[in-house]
């Protein structure tokens, strides 16, 4: 259980950045835990759902000249759409919703460390599914927009297609994509979490006000950069997989 949950007492002191199990239940004979990551994820998703519902209502009664909250929402939507358009060009029309949702979700997860939650993205169980979704999107789009023969030629690429010696290496490269994407996000957020826990746990006599600087760096700057990188790489990989066919 310790190895799976990363839980347990770390030398019995008050440095605490672990995931704790809240309660366990049996599922198909396996012991499954509901952990603090689930709770934090639920909080993040609930806040975002409320935000989206309120935003939808605002846009339903949108005025010609935007005021207040509508201004804010339009800035967000324009920024996200502009980012997708700039990276993917014409091919990005269908991916605006997914990339925008991904950006908002990861960004809010990363900066939720400011609100006293343990960031859900500091759990590999949250980032690996995001990587796998990217992987599935890459390959579904590869097969949608290219013929099987083209894909075979591409997979044997440095050598001619009748000599598939490079095929296994290219396949390993393909499977490394979701792992490296998810590990990058996970390790960045985890390192910030660990650093903040060390500061608060070991220096708790003198940790007044100045850890705000560290929060600004680890939670806001690093979190925003990693969100941007994750979305950017997802878009680049998908747009590479689609290729240069102007069908979208």
């Amino acid at each position: 259980m310790q190895g799976i949950l990363l839980a347990g007492d770390s030398a019995g002191n008050n440095v605490d950045f672990m995931i704790h199990g809240i309660f366990s239940y049996q599922l198909f004979g396996q012991q499954v835990w509901i952990t603090t990551s689930h709770v934090c994820l639920l909080i993040v998703v609930c806040v975002l759902t409320i935000f989206f519902i309120v935003g939808g209502q605002v846009f339903k009664h949108a005025s010609e000249i935007p005021t207040g909250f509508q201004n804010f929402l339009e800035i967000i939507v324009e920024f996200l759409d502009g980012m997708v358009d700039k990276t993917m060009g014409k091919k990005g029309k269908g991916f605006r919703n997914y990339i925008g949702m991904l950006f908002i979700f990861i960004l809010f997860s990363n900066i939720s460390g400011l609100l006293g939650l343990r960031p859900p993205t500091a759990d590999y169980g949250v980032t690996l599914p995001l990587g796998i979704i990217t992987f599935i999107l890459i390959h579904v789009n590869e097969f949608r927009f290219n013929s099987v023969k083209d894909i075979w030629v591409d997979k044997c690429s440095p050598l001619p297609p009748w000599l598939p010696i490079w095929l296994p290496i290219n396949l390993i490269g393909d499977f490394a994509v979701p792992i490296s994407l998810s590990l990058r996000l996970f390790a960045n957020v985890l390192s910030g979490t660990v650093m903040m826990a060390l500061v608060y746990g070991l220096l708790n006599k003198v940790a007044y006000a100045w850890p705000a600087v560290l929060h600004a760096y680890f939670d806001i700057f690093s979190g925003a950069i990693q969100t941007y990188v994750f979305c950017m790489l997802t878009m680049t990989y998908i747009s590479n997989a689609i290729g240069n066919k102007e069908e979208a």
Partner: peptide, 19 residues
């Protein structure tokens, strides 16, 4: 920043091993 974040990955792997 994009390139730097990608280059950071190898260092983070070392950090993960340490963790």
């Amino acid at each position: 920043l994009l390139g730097q974040a990608v280059a950071e990955t190898t260092g983070l792997y070392g950090l993960l091993i340490a963790m």
